[in-house]
Computed example of a mutant assay.
Amino acid sequence: MYNEAQKHKRVNAMKIGFRTIKTAVGVSISVLLAQMLQLEYYSSAGILTLLCIQKSRKQSVHAVVSRMFACLAGLAASTVLFQLMGYHPYAFLVYLLLFIPLCVRLRIQEGIASSSVIVMHVYMHRAADFAFFANELFVIAIGLGVALLVNWYMPSIDKELYRCKEEVDRLISAILHEIALYLKEGITLWDGKELLLLGDVLQQAKRLVLLDMENNGFRKSNSYEQNFERKRKQYEILERMLPAISLINAKIDQGIRIGDFVEQLSLHLQNRDCKDEFSEVLRGIREYHKKLPLPESRSEFENRANLYAVANELERFVDTM
């Protein structure tokens, strides 16, 4: 079993992702185009493309814009500075001390590495002439332009979003089932792992929704965002509910009734048409509890109080369906 796990881990480590493929293709196209145009420092176009491949279209556009301004600013600033101070290594010290704070202030600090590639060309060329500037502009245009075009295609993550949605529903149903079992039987061997997993899956879903929105706007992400927001609220309600449930230390009729309700809730969680029916059943349970005689012991009083708190949370849970 250990060997199989290690083998599976190595296979995952060697798996080539779509972003890796896009990076390889983009860099190759950039170098090819720059070389075909017989540009000097043509390999730098590939470096610029490499630095601009991002996770989403929005991030890609931001990366290209910030790097474009940084490259142009670096080209101009380094040319002036090297002409004034000479083409000496210490000129880099002055340049970086001035240029890095400027990029940070202009919020284009992501482009510092990219612009440094162009600055190195200025230093090696050791002259300011039109042909050199034209060459650098072509290198920048090819490197950033290819990155933007290649990164514009983003694979659909609908399957991942749907899997997250299914897993979230499964975990919530499992948690509700365990709660119902405890209320009806008074005992449980549940270790609570589903609650921890639910938090992790909701975090993953949030990242996927954000990524999908950056790629497609609100084309379909809005519905996923609303769904996972409802599930996030249900998760928070379950977290608040569990401490009160854990304090119920006796099997009583009220608990059994609420347990039956929670069991039905777990079975029909995805059916939002049952929302009104669930609300009506819960109101019926509350009315039944109001008609019961006063508790005869402190233990019974505490159990009823905790059940009352659970019923309050269940009302909020049903409202989020």
Rank of each mutant, 00 (worst) to 15 (best):
E4T: 14
Q6P: 00
R10A: 10
V11C: 05
I16Y: 02
F18C: 09
V25H: 01
V27G: 02
S28Y: 02
S28F: 08
I29Y: 00
S30L: 04
M36L: 10
A45T: 04
C52S: 15
K55T: 06
V61D: 02
H62S: 15
V65F: 03
S66C: 14
C71Y: 02
L75I: 08
A77M: 11
L81H: 04
G86E: 11
G86Y: 05
G86V: 11
Y90R: 13
F92K: 04
L93P: 01
L96I: 15
L97P: 06
L98G: 15
C103K: 05
I112G: 03
S116P: 04
I118R: 03
V122G: 05
V122K: 02
M124R: 07
R126F: 00
A131R: 10
N135Y: 00
I140Y: 01
I142L: 03
V146C: 06
L149W: 01
N151R: 07
N151K: 04
W152Y: 13
W152G: 13
Y153L: 03
E160I: 05
R163L: 07
C164N: 14
K165L: 06
E166Y: 02
E166M: 10
L171K: 08
A174V: 14
A174L: 13
L183D: 11
L183V: 14
G186C: 03
L189P: 01
W190Y: 14
L202Y: 04
E214A: 11
N216D: 03
G217Q: 04
E229Y: 10
E229W: 06
K231G: 06
K233C: 06
E236Q: 14
L238S: 08
S246R: 15
L247V: 12
N249W: 00
K251G: 11
K251F: 02
I252A: 08
D253Q: 15
R257C: 08
G259T: 12
D260V: 09
L265K: 08
S266Q: 05
L267M: 07
L269Q: 05
K275T: 15
F278Y: 06
E280K: 12
R283T: 08
I285M: 05
K290P: 00
K291W: 00
K291E: 12
L294A: 12
E296M: 08
E302P: 00
E313L: 12
D319S: 12
D319T: 04
